[in-house]
Design a protein around this nucleic acid. Structure first.
Length: 266
DNA sequence: CATCAGGTGAAGT
DNA sequence: ACTTCACCTGAT
């Protein structure tokens, strides 16, 4: 299946943006993605043209929405222009998109993410998927559902390197197992209410709730503040960052800053 | 081997 | 309301 993309779309930028943990570089110009119980291999074969190893039907129903192809990111990027630092970040991060990832997976993934490096987050998620997620092929397992997480012993769950986050994850799994419709019902809430509801979960504070809202619920105006963003803002906006500047796309700008600043300073 | 990692919740001012 | 602190453990 060949896909032509005229809009901003850079696999490396997205893979290194910190929004996804199962989106990894494989061979040259090729990335392997595990999402929605499927594995996708996507290769850039020439400018604006990508080869996806999936059916036309899956491409249309799963991956097109996953890559958020209906949003015009070049238009958003071009709005960022009146500040030199932000313009540099946006140019450097050209190709960024905010993926439409699975909401439940984002809740657990970002609970795991706290005080962990990205490689460590990935390791935990892979282990967790392996011990209780559906097998997809010899190397890949789907992200587990709440009942699948609850069906393994806490000791075995702990072996995924979850540490003190173990209880948070079990509590979230119980919550969403008891209310299977809750994940989608929360999507009906406005940004502020959604944020409040997410923060009611143990282990979900401002940062994790913002990430889940932005990357799971696709609320593009959330602006998660992690150590990298805080360093960047401290350095370039000592008098404070004006959140009204790029509303309702603060989250996209956050991704530009995160990717550019972290790439240059790590 | 010590330090740090895309924070959070609870305890203490 | 703000500040401080312990916390599991993999990666470097």
């Amino acid at each position: 299946m060949e896909l032509k993309v005229k809009d901003d779309f850079d696999l490396e930028v997205i893979a290194e943006s910190g929004q996804c943990f199962r989106f990894n570089k494989a061979e040259n110009n090729t990335y392997r993605i595990v999402a929605f119980g499927r594995v996708l291999t996507i290769e850039k074969i020439k400018e604006n043209t990508f080869k996806l190893d999936c059916s036309k039907d899956d491409c249309k129903k799963i991956w097109y929405p996953y890559f958020d192809m209906d949003t015009d990111y070049s238009a958003i990027r071009k709005k960022v222009g009146d500040n030199t630092f932000l313009k540099e970040c946006a140019d450097y991060s050209k190709g960024m998109r905010i993926l439409r990832q699975d909401k439940w997976e984002m809740i657990i993934s970002f609970i795991i993410s706290q005080r962990k490096s990205i490689p460590a987050i990935k390791t935990s998620i892979e282990r967790l998927s392996k011990i209780c997620g559906d097998k997809i092929d010899d190397e890949n397992h789907a992200f587990p559902t709440p009942i699948q997480i609850l069906s393994v012993s806490p000791e075995k769950l702990a072996s995924c390197g979850l540490g003190y986050r173990l209880d948070y994850i079990i509590k979230a799994a119980e919550m969403f197992y008891e209310n299977p419709l809750l994940v989608e019902e929360m999507d009906k809430l406005d940004d502020e209410k959604l944020f409040e509801e997410l923060k009611k979960l143990q282990g979900v504070g401002d940062k994790v709730a913002s990430c889940v809202a932005l990357f799971g619920y696709h609320r593009l105006n959330f602006f998660p503040k992690d150590v990298w963003i805080n360093r960047a803002l401290c350095e370039h906006f000592p008098d404070g960052y004006d959140m009204s500047l790029y509303a309702p796309y603060n989250g996209v700008v956050q991704q530009y800053i995160f990717f550019a600043y972290r790439s240059k300073n790590k």
